[in-house]
Design a protein around this nucleic acid. Structure first.
Length: 470
RNA sequence: GCGCCCUUCGUCUAUCGGUUAGGACAGCAGCCUUUCACGUUGCAGAGGCGGGUUCGAUUCCCGCAGGGCGCGCCA
């Protein structure tokens, strides 16, 4: 038995766009596995595509991960900065005869593929420079370096999710390691970086499964140890089609502004492709405790906002009032809404118990808390206006008098209103609905007596007065 | 075209050959109730198709169909 190695996982996004939900899930799984095993979780930015990589995208990824609470260990590795080392490995392969220079031009290669396609043959590099030694003049083409890949036999990937996946070597071609300008390709860079970073487990999207075979060939050529692979099925949009901007491919930071809590996102993402019996609400602590590679599913999953909403509502209800109030205020700020006054901040906190019960997102909570943010005179919406019939307005006027001596707590107010309704020979609802309409301008709100307690005596009576008929 | 992967309620999933195929979200109905929500009770809802293997297949094997991914001097 070999000595137990510390497990090292990594998340390696390319900064050509924001961090989307699929990438976030991949990051989560890597993070969870590292935490579960007491290992290390590293972050590597694969910025070797100079044309498409942007600093904005790097920031978006870093911020997204920070928001989700997926903290990486050690320094962030920027792949482009390691190009010299990647080149060094290619040179070594070249020196050992495990790679070779190919002088084929783009045009030549394109023609080759077109021919193969027309002939119904698999499209792959035909190895035309594999055994050719350069005698005579050097073609005026900056050569690429290709791996001299095995042409017979099989390359086998033992995948922790997909099981054993076998590729016949004759379907894999001699792919490029170094471009004509001497820069390394992704295939080379990944392998070298993973080795140098000591990565033991590669958890990534399914779309890399075939790449694994090529990467394994490089690793074998270098005589390095093979990492454990775990390829996650891809995520699809709500309609089952590929994720696109229209559904679900939002940047992870947008979920933040949509009012979702990171713990809810983590729980939701975790259940997309991983399960633990019938467990649905899984705290991050439990997730770390339970997470394993064996329970990752093999079939693709769709994102479902309804379920995310449900989970988010659960975590909101479970959250501390003060934390939620802080988050709400921060979101208000990000939305460009006016800053809260001390008074409003206190009201928001006081109303939080009843507010958080009836919202699935912070955005919804803000909407439900509008009675705190709005100023008199309130403009009732259509339904509220309907509830404020002439009879109701007259009743509100009488209620004002009845409340004159009432101590201003939710309980006392409720008792007084109930007594008033009874005296009026009315049902409580007949009094409460117009009251709600007058206080909030809506027909739906937290319990009216809570609203009144939050608003305070003066403001409550003033709002009622605004709608009451003499 | 070639290769690889996948296939249980609308959605996410459980099931390690024998279950009335379970749970969750969503939906519908009831209860609770000052509205909404929460909570709670109930209803409806699934093994793609065809062959095998087996006393017995959702589960194992093969084929087909459907879906996905890959096949760049992108990552």
């Amino acid at each position: 038995m070999s000595a137990p190695r510390q497990i090292v996982t990594r998340f390696a996004p390319s900064p050509t766009g924001y961090l989307h939900i699929g990438g976030a899930r991949t990051a989560l799984f890597n993070w969870l596995y590292a935490r579960h095993t007491g290992g290390i979780f590293r972050l590597r930015i694969e910025d070797t595509d100079r044309a498409r990589s942007t600093p904005e995208a790097i920031d978006a990824i870093l911020e997204g991960m920070a928001w989700l609470g997926l903290h990486h260990d050690g320094e962030v590795v920027y792949q482009f900065a390691r190009a010299a080392r990647h080149r060094e490995v290619a040179e070594e392969l070249l020196a050992r005869g495990l790679a070779y220079r190919c002088y084929a031009t783009h045009e030549e290669l394109e023609a080759m593929r077109a021919e193969q396609k027309a002939a119904g043959k698999p499209m792959r590099y035909d190895g035309r420079w594999r055994d050719r030694t350069l005698d005579g003049p050097v073609p005026n083409v900056p050569p690429v370096v290709r791996l001299k890949a095995p042409q017979t036999g099989e390359t086998v990937i033992e995948d922790a999710v997909q099981g054993q996946v076998v590729f016949r070597n004759d379907v894999l071609d001699d792919f490029v390691l170094l471009r004509g300008d001497g820069t390394p390709t992704y295939m080379l860079s990944v392998v070298v970086d993973d080795f140098d970073m000591g990565v033991t487990h590669i958890i990534r999207g399914d779309d890399h499964l075939t790449n694994s075979a090529r990467q394994r060939q490089i690793i074998d050529a270098m005589g390095w140890p093979q990492p454990v692979y775990a390829h996650l099925p891809l995520l699809h949009g709500e309609d089952g089609a590929k994720l696109s901007k229209r559904h679900g491919a939002l940047g992870i930071h947008e979920y933040r502004n949509l009012g979702y809590l990171p713990e809810a996102m983590r729980n939701y993402l975790l259940r997309l492709g991983w399960s633990h019996g019938d467990s649905e609400t899984i705290s991050t602590e439990q997730a770390i405790d339970w997470f394993n590679l064996e329970s990752i599913g093999r079939s693709p999953a769709r994102v479902d906002f309804k379920k995310l909403n449900n989970l988010n509502g659960f975590y909101m209800r479970a959250a501390a009032d003060s934390d939620l109030a802080t988050e709400t205020e921060a979101l208000l700020g990000r939305l460009g809404r006016p800053a809260l006054t001390e008074h409003q901040r206190a009201q928001l906190l006081a109303a939080m118990p009843s507010l958080k019960d009836r919202a699935k997102t912070l955005i919804e909570l803000i909407d439900n808390a509008s009675f705190i943010f709005e100023t008199r005179p309130l403009v009732p919406d259509d339904k509220a206006a309907k509830a404020l019939s002439p009879e109701a307005r007259a009743r509100l006027a009488r209620l004002t008098t009845a409340l004159a001596e009432t101590p201003w707590t939710a309980g006392e107010i409720e008792a007084a209103v109930r007594a008033f309704a009874e005296a009026e020979g009315a049902k409580l609802g007949d009094v409460a609905q117009p009251l709600r309409a007058a206080l909030t301008g809506r027909t739906v709100s937290p319990p009216v007596f809570d609203v009144m307690a939050t608003l305070g005596r003066a403001e409550s009576l003033a709002r009622i007065g605004d709608q009451a008929a003499a």
